[in-house]
């Protein structure tokens, strides 16, 4: 899934399991040895945040373009906050723009799917019943 440069041999990629990646990401003392590993963490944590936001937006329900804009702000804000609270040197990983846009489109698609399906499942039958009444 993820590749990492070993400290012994810089050109040889090594594998990092998903659970190790999660542990590394959640720890505040992690020193990211490789940009690919760090961006993998950003990618997967963003996916989880996107799914979570889609679920919440669908249940509330948050509708219209406010929902889309709120998602954009929350998703980018999460990455920015993570970098500032964990003292990440963004220049080391290609700049803050590269980090913020990492996996954004996939994240956006995952969010939309969760939002649409949750909204349809939770509220659509109710609104149909209300219309019929």
């Amino acid at each position: 899934m993820a590749s990492k440069q070993s400290t012994m041999d810089k050109s040889k990629p090594i594998e990092v399991s998903f659970s190790t990646l999660m542990k590394m990401g959640l720890s505040s003392k992690t020193e990211w040895p490789d940009t690919e590993i760090f961006l993998d963490w950003i990618y997967w944590s963003r996916q989880i945040v996107g799914l979570f936001l889609g679920l919440i937006w669908g249940v509330i329900p948050l509708t219209g373009f406010i929902g889309l804009i709120a998602f954009g702000l929350c998703s980018s804000g999460y990455v920015y906050l993570y970098c500032t609270t964990h003292n990440i040197d963004d220049e080391e990983h290609g700049g803050i723009w590269e980090i913020v846009k990492e996996g954004f489109m996939t994240n956006f698609a995952s969010f939309l799917v969760t939002w649409i399906i949750t909204y349809s499942c939770v509220h659509f039958d109710e609104s149909l019943t209300a219309q019929q009444l």
Binding site: M1, L39, Y43, T106, A109, S110, L112
Partner: peptide, 20 residues
């Protein structure tokens, strides 16, 4: 939308996505 979301993740999980 589902394909945009799922295909990319499946590729990443299986290790078939190209390096950044």
């Amino acid at each position: 939308l589902c394909t945009m979301s799922i295909r990319q993740n499946v590729q990443k999980i299986l290790g078939f996505s190209p390096s950044r």
